[in-house]
Design a protein around this nucleic acid. Structure first.
Length: 569
RNA sequence: CGGGCUGUAGCGCAGCUUGGUUAGCGCGCAGCGUUUGGGACGCUGAGGUCGUCAGUUCAAAUCUGACCAGCCCGACCA
């Protein structure tokens, strides 16, 4: 492609509405333009990268036996109602009525539709299967952000596996795991696999692939020593035991005027340190008011709470609801003596004695609380948010917590969809048996953006060779120089004929503009052709990533490019 | 959904407090000329329903109200 004919609208200034580096560079580099919140037009350069990302994914999924489909974006809402997800995913589903009045859902994911296709599987002899497609998804995210990192319309590679049993599922799951690690590596990212919450997917086990980044929206707790890593939504840690000996005694109510917070009580004369307090929260879980007990210095992890209770909708209770339930306001709440209310207690409070908590009367607390003795615990659950520096649950070394971008997520779904949608095969004995499913997703545009977050410098994008929109840019320093035109054109022709994607910068611009643009859009190799070099019979190679420059004899240029690209000559 | 901020030319911005005639600046864009190894310079020129609607006023980019859109923080979210 000749740059003079290409539509590559680069910008000098950062777009005013961009914050994330990948967003700024994608817009400035002429890769994308925003159409509306969370919806982007992909320009020619962006489309080339997108195609390369999809090609890499396709290669790796084909390599583990994937068969490519293309399932629709328009789904009848009835199928979503059968699995119950029309309701559980209602807040992100985009839908409309067709001209006959039928409700159509714009697919946010394709478990239901692949499962529908899989109803034609009838025999164990047909299993296992690995099906996938690369298709547009629609999700009405409440708050799209950061350019391509969080959008409402995007492309996803989603695969689905169908097996006789969980052992088969495990094999397909592991194959996907390995394929995903290869894919992200080829996309220029070092992904970390973490244990995750499977949320509304209806699954039992899931692994997320995370790329460490300041603009990431998830938090990962990772061991500094062993390979333990988990999304903060599921992470656990080992706590130092607290010695409660010497804290026995009878319950004692005492006045705490003005004390409303854990810290207040820690500073109060006659109060105690946060780890000797019980924090009492009131949540509404699927409509039921529930007490949540945590150690005073601990924080609730809402996703862990949701997973532990299998609740669909939860939120903190309103002040009035709390007062009606317990007769006091937040700051003076406790579970001592509370009956007939569901109480969920974090496991960090197990066996604790000599604790202090609110008395359910404003300005009063209770001390010498023995959890087992004085509180109707209800259920013990792990719902505490892990903090940086706590001990790894597996090896005891410190955990670190960092933000990361979720670029992929794989799920062991089990038989949820089989049961809802009637997926079954006959086994060797002629017995009807439900099909065991897995699902596996990679966000294509998000991966593009994440790759930029991981591969850029202050001049622009630094694409890995495999995903760059062009491998090489030939920068013609003087377009009015006859020799420069001849050499650059013949090199362009030779490389193009050899299967190299070349951008020939033949624009009538000053050299500085061309160099800056080439670096901004991130082409891995620049070949500078100008009178200065041609006098010595050479062109100049500049590697985007390292900045290394070297002179190459004109005749050696093409083979040198192939060597750079890792192709043998 | 709560909080904050912003809508003026393709991009980035000023002007609004204190209403007043042809609404400015930089970049970019077109033509001509000079230039040409790290975002050149001169001259000429094109390009704007000032987010939308309503109101106040002799007069609204500017004041008032409603609405719409976008960004950021939070909530929410495979």
């Amino acid at each position: 492609m000749r740059w003079s004919k290409a539509f590559i609208p680069t910008l000098r200034d950062d777009p005013a509405d961009a914050e994330a580096v990948s967003h700024k560079l994608l817009v400035r580099g002429g890769y994308i333009r925003q159409l509306m919140s969370g919806v982007y037009s992909v320009l020619p350069l962006g489309q080339r990268v997108r195609e390369r990302v999809m090609a890499i994914i396709r290669e790796e999924i084909d390599a583990i036996g994937g068969q490519e489909f293309l399932l629709p974006q328009l789904h009848p809402s009835s199928i979503w109602e059968q699995t119950g997800r029309a309701e559980t995913m209602a807040d992100i589903i985009m839908s409309f009525k067709d001209n006959k009045g039928a409700k159509i859902i714009l697919g946010p994911t394709h478990e239901e539709i692949f499962a529908t296709a899989a109803t034609e599987l009838t025999s164990y002899k047909q299993l296992p299967q690995l099906w996938y497609h690369i298709q547009t998804k629609f999700r009405d995210e409440a708050r799209p952000k950061s350019g391509l990192l969080r959008v409402r319309e995007f492309t996803m590679k989603d695969s689905y596996t169908f097996d006789m049993d969980f052992a088969g599922l495990d094999i397909q799951f592991d194959r996907h795991f390995d394929a995903y690690m290869r894919i992200f590596h080829r996309l220029g990212m070092e992904a970390v696999a973490v244990r995750a919450s499977s949320g509304a997917m209806g699954g039992k086990e899931s692994v997320e692939f995370m790329v460490r980044s300041e603009v990431g929206e998830d938090d990962v707790a990772a061991c500094t020593s062993c390979d333990y890593a988990a999304n903060l939504e599921t992470a656990t840690s080992r706590l130092d035991p607290i010695d409660d000996s010497g804290y026995g005694g009878e319950l004692e109510r005492f006045a705490t005027p003005g004390v409303r917070t854990i810290d207040d009580l820690a500073r109060f004369d006659g109060g105690v340190q946060p780890d000797r307090q019980i924090k009492t929260l009131v949540y509404v879980l699927d409509g039921e008011l529930t007490l949540i007990l945590l150690r005073g210095d601990h924080t609730l992890q809402e996703q862990k709470l949701q997973d532990a209770t299998q609740s669909i909708e939860l939120h903190a209770a309103q002040a009035e609801e709390i007062h009606t339930l317990l007769g006091a306001d937040p700051g003076s709440l406790g579970a001592v003596g509370v009956e007939e209310v569901r109480v969920l207690t974090d496991v960090a409070l197990q066996d604790r004695r000599g604790m202090t908590t609110g008395a359910n009367e404003n300005d009063f607390h209770v001390r010498c609380v023995d959890i087992e003795r004085d509180i109707s615990v209800g259920e013990w659950v792990d719902i505490r948010m892990v903090e940086e520096g706590e001990a790894c649950p597996e090896c005891g070394e410190p955990l670190e917590v960092y933000p990361a971008i979720e670029v992929g997520h794989i799920f062991k779904l089990g038989t949820f969809y089989a049961e809802k949608l009637g997926l079954s095969v006959l086994d060797e004995n002629g017995q009807k048996t439900p099909i065991v499913m897995g699902s596996y997703g990679i966000g294509v545009e998000r991966s593009m953006a994440a790759s930029i977050e991981a591969n850029h410098d202050d001049r622009g994008i630094v694409w890995p060779v495999d995903v760059a929109p062009y491998h090489v840019v030939i920068t013609v320093v003087r377009t009015d120089d006859e020799r420069s035109r001849e050499v650059s054109t013949s090199l362009y022709d030779e490389l193009t004929a050899g299967g190299v994607d070349v951008l020939l910068d033949d624009r009538d611009e000053r050299p500085g503009v061309k160099f800056t643009d080439a670096e901004l859009i991130g082409i891995p190799l620049r070949i500078t052709v100008g009178p200065r070099g041609l006098d010595a019979g050479v062109v100049e190679f500049t590697e985007r990533q390292t900045g290394d420059q070297r002179e190459v004899a004109i005749a050696d240029a093409a083979p040198e490019v192939l060597r750079f690209l890792g192709r043998t000559t």
